[in-house]
Each structure stands twice: as C-alpha cells, then as structure tokens.
C-alpha cells in the first residue's frame, strides 16, 4: 500500500489530498479516524496521526472535538490551486527538457497537445 522509501506520514497526507481532489472525499465529509486508518493499512497509529495533523496544519482538514476530523470547506479549491501552481514546474518543464534531449521539436509537442484537445472537443 505504501512504498518504504518516503516517510509514511507524507504518503498518507498525499493520499488524502488525492481523495479530496478526485471527489472521493467531499468537503464537510468526515474522514476515517487515524486509528481506523492505521489498523486498515497496518501502519503505526502515531505515524498515521502525523499525516492527518499535517493536513490539519495546512487547513485541509479540521478537528471537531470528540467527534473526529472533517474536510474543510474550500479544501478542494485550495488543493487544485496548489497543484496548478506546480503543474508547469513539475510536469511541463521536465517534459520540455526530455524533448530537447532526444530532439523532439517543441512545435511537435504543441501539435500533439492540440490534437488531444481537438479529439476531446469532438467527444
């Protein structure tokens, strides 16, 4: 379930963010308790709690005393903005570098992307 290279708490935080982004977890939804999460995925409960607390610190989740943790209103928009901000540096720049390395003109890349957009618009 988890790779054994990256700190588990970071992987937990990333997984919950993904669930919020793709709508598996909606804003206002209660998330699994850290103990449920730990038992289900067979990981240390303190480590799981650290992952959840990171999201509380980032304002993605909030705690209701004695009840559990919930997805903050506006969390999805916030995560989308974060991802969009990183999109060009994380995805596009490395692709352009690879294209340069193997001699694919950026014009070809642009043409390819336009092809994708055209097919999408016909669907």
């Amino acid at each position: 379930m988890f790779d054994d290279r990256t700190p588990i708490y970071q992987q937990i935080a990333a997984r919950l963010k993904q669930d919020i982004l793709d709508g598996t977890l909606a804003e206002g939804d209660q998330v699994m308790s850290t103990n449920q999460f730990a038992t289900y995925y067979r990981i240390n409960p303190a480590t799981a709690a650290k992952g959840f607390h990171q999201l509380v610190d980032e304002g993605v989740l909030y705690k209701k005393r004695g009840l559990g943790m919930y997805v903050t209103d506006g969390a999805r928009a916030k995560l989308l903005a974060e991802r969009r901000e990183r999109f060009f540096s994380d995805m596009v720049d490395p692709m352009a570098a690879e294209a340069g390395l193997i001699g694919v003109p950026l014009a070809d890349v642009v043409a390819h992307l336009e092809g994708i957009e055209e097919r999408r618009s016909r669907m």
Binding site: N35, A38, T39, R42, I43, N44, P45
Partner: peptide, 13 residues
Amino acid sequence: RYLFQEELLADYV
C-alpha cells in the same frame, strides 16, 4: 503474519 499485524494494531489502539 498479516493477521498478526492487524490484531496487534487493533489491540494496541
């Protein structure tokens, strides 16, 4: 072994 891990964590919490 998986069963043991599951039971250990469930009881530890």
